[in-house]
Computed example of a mutant assay.
Amino acid sequence: MTPSPSSAQVVAVARDDAHRFSKPTRDEITLIAGYGVEGDAHAGATVQHVSRVRRDPSSPNLRQVHLIHSELFDLMAERGHGVEPGALGENITTVGVDLLGLPRGARLEIGEGAVVEITGLRNPCSQINGLSNGLMKELVYLDDDGETVRLTGVMSVVVSGGVVRPGDGIRVILPSGAHEPLPVV
């Protein structure tokens, strides 16, 4: 899917310099190639997530920038869970992009030159229930075929840096070749 620039855009941006679950929204964030969001606790060339650092601190950081589609918040509101931008720890909240349907290696050109490459699906933790009791069951569940469905957004690495602000357009650039489903990262 390649939406028109007018339909796909940034709703909100967030960052936090500490390893807290939610991130405060900001007027803008700066993406740095190969590193992530300037001033964010999860930025770095190697893993920064606390539990992953314990396992192997030299692993490459495939989770530099976390993106969530705002349409998820509307769905959760219908199910009785109030979720706002930044509450699930994402750096960029989008609208008009089927993030979960993108293949591995898809790139998002955001604003005037920032580019992120999608590495996989976010695997959330039970801290999500701290936002709203039962929210985790809404966001991660087994479908009718017994497959795990994860709705908590996608992870990416920064290919080209730049400033990202709410209202910036997003252009999807699909990789050549066969569609490779997103792994959990």
Rank of each mutant, 00 (worst) to 15 (best):
residue 2 T to G: 10
residue 3 P to F: 08
residue 3 P to K: 10
residue 11 V to I: 15
residue 13 V to I: 07
residue 15 R to V: 08
residue 16 D to G: 14
residue 16 D to K: 13
residue 19 H to A: 14
residue 20 R to M: 11
residue 22 S to I: 04
residue 25 T to H: 05
residue 27 D to N: 12
residue 28 E to W: 12
residue 29 I to W: 01
residue 35 Y to Q: 10
residue 37 V to K: 01
residue 39 G to V: 03
residue 45 A to I: 07
residue 46 T to I: 13
residue 46 T to L: 08
residue 51 S to I: 13
residue 57 P to D: 13
residue 63 R to N: 06
residue 64 Q to L: 08
residue 67 L to R: 03
residue 68 I to G: 04
residue 71 E to N: 12
residue 73 F to I: 03
residue 74 D to I: 11
residue 75 L to P: 01
residue 76 M to G: 00
residue 82 G to Y: 09
residue 82 G to E: 15
residue 85 P to T: 04
residue 90 E to T: 04
residue 93 T to G: 05
residue 93 T to W: 03
residue 95 V to L: 10
residue 98 D to T: 09
residue 98 D to E: 13
residue 99 L to V: 01
residue 99 L to I: 04
residue 100 L to T: 00
residue 100 L to S: 02
residue 102 L to M: 08
residue 103 P to C: 08
residue 104 R to P: 00
residue 106 A to G: 09
residue 108 L to N: 03
residue 111 G to M: 08
residue 115 V to T: 11
residue 116 V to P: 03
residue 118 I to C: 03
residue 119 T to Y: 01
residue 123 N to S: 14
residue 127 Q to M: 11
residue 127 Q to H: 11
residue 128 I to P: 02
residue 129 N to G: 04
residue 131 L to F: 07
residue 133 N to F: 01
residue 133 N to Y: 02
residue 135 L to A: 04
residue 137 K to E: 14
residue 138 E to M: 06
residue 138 E to Q: 14
residue 140 V to I: 12
residue 140 V to K: 07
residue 140 V to C: 07
residue 141 Y to L: 09
residue 142 L to S: 11
residue 143 D to Q: 07
residue 143 D to Y: 09
residue 144 D to H: 12
residue 144 D to A: 15
residue 151 L to M: 15
residue 152 T to L: 08
residue 153 G to T: 05
residue 156 S to L: 02
residue 157 V to F: 02
residue 159 V to I: 15
residue 159 V to F: 07
residue 159 V to P: 03
residue 161 G to K: 05
residue 163 V to F: 05
residue 163 V to I: 15
residue 164 V to W: 07
residue 166 P to K: 09
residue 166 P to E: 08
residue 169 G to N: 13
residue 170 I to T: 02
residue 171 R to E: 09
residue 173 I to A: 11
residue 175 P to R: 08
residue 175 P to L: 08
residue 177 G to A: 06
residue 178 A to W: 08
residue 179 H to N: 12
residue 179 H to F: 14
residue 180 E to N: 13
residue 182 L to W: 00
residue 184 V to H: 07
